[in-house]
Design a protein around this nucleic acid. Structure first.
Lengths: 216, 216
DNA sequence: GTCTATATGTAGATAGAC
DNA sequence: GTCTATCTACATATAGAC
């Protein structure tokens, strides 16, 4: 596949360069999540990564492109995790709660136990899913997996129109991302911190909601 | 209440000034909603309002204060609408779907039929509810009404802990704001635009979700 | 291929004119 | 009380050094 005769062949990146790049992407992930795309400056990101603003531009390209790249970096791994869980589940029959568990479980788990980078990534997913400015990013990185889950859920509610299933799926994802990123809100409203990961109450809510909204 | 002898008494604002101020706040509402707090510059807002950047500063104060004022401007009216509906409903008994209708109906209605300013405001509500940077704004303008609804819902599920009710409420509001602001997402996922206001499918989803999550 | 110094535009805020 | 001209600082992007 390589073509040594090509005059444009590039040198492989050094280990040092790769490490710098990783630090920059980690910092960008956290700061975009905390302050939003416009609120996080390349300088802030550089400082958090321990480098300079120019280097951020070099490794990440234009700011908008870097944001896309940050989303892309984990999208495939997360999507694969969710789809693998789905396939494993479907192999032994299919029930709504199980499918929802495959859909939401990996997200909730990574956000809760995957460390600060995954926590930041969950917040970015919420941003991208809610903001029409990033519509193309949703479309490229999240919609394919979503479409698969919608299809499987639709199979469980043969009489429901696909538009209703899609609507219920959006409600579901929105509740899931609220759990991952806005826990402080529920804590504040309840007066006391809420125990556990919240996955089971999320699954209860979404399962009950879908049954009520989609049942023939 | 007025004190004509006070040496610091101020002149009443002119009609022209009030009109300018209203245009500035309308423009800020739309642009903060579209581009986020950091993405919308005071100059953009000035241009949209047909004035100058300096005037925006004069009428709105510091940018952060102006954002707060924009939220405050409609918060009271909307909260009053929701609470009035709730009180009217409670007077003739109480059922979950009715309470949820009072909670979500006014928001969905204003976002769908209240014109571009209310549509923008719904998006701002979603931003504020999701972003810990605006936690104090949520707390001041939205939490009191939320607490009231949570209390009424909790009354319908006497065995559920308040923390579980608060969690379910957050899921509910999150689905509601997704309906108001991320319709394009459901449309894209379903392949066809979704008919109707979506209020009844939202109510179905949240009612079913709450029953499943909170039932003894 | 990797990194730095700097150009160019625009941000938010305000002193002072009307 | 109302509005404008302008100030300082920082944003992103890139030309060119290593």
């Amino acid at each position: 596949m390589t073509d040594d005769t090509a005059p444009t062949r590039r040198r492989a990146p050094s280990a040092r360069s790769l490490a710098t790049r990783a630090r920059i992407f980690d910092a960008a992930e956290c700061l975009f999540a905390e302050r939003g795309f416009d609120g996080a400056s390349l300088r802030d990101i550089a400082a958090a990564a321990g480098t300079t603003a120019g280097l951020v531009g070099f490794h990440g390209g234009a700011k908008r492109d870097m944001f896309r790249a940050v989303i892309a970096r984990r999208a495939e791994a997360l999507g694969a995790l969710r789809l693998a869980a789905l396939d494993a589940h479907l192999a032994k029959g299919a029930d709504l709660r199980g499918v929802l568990g495959c859909c939401l479980g990996p997200i909730v788990d990574k956000a809760a136990n995957g460390g600060p980078q995954w926590r930041a990534y969950a917040r970015l997913m919420a941003t991208v899913s809610a903001d029409p400015r990033w519509r193309d990013v949703s479309k490229a990185y999240f919609d394919p997996v979503s479409a698969r889950f919608i299809t499987e859920i639709a199979r469980l509610f043969p009489t429901a129109p696909r538009s209703a299933v899609a609507q219920a799926y959006v409600f579901t994802i929105s509740a899931c991302l609220a759990l991952c990123t806005a826990r402080w809100r529920a804590d504040a409203l309840s007066g006391a911190p809420i125990p556990g990961s919240g996955l089971s109450s999320l699954l209860n809510f979404c399962e009950g909601g879908m049954r009520r909204a989609l049942a023939g």
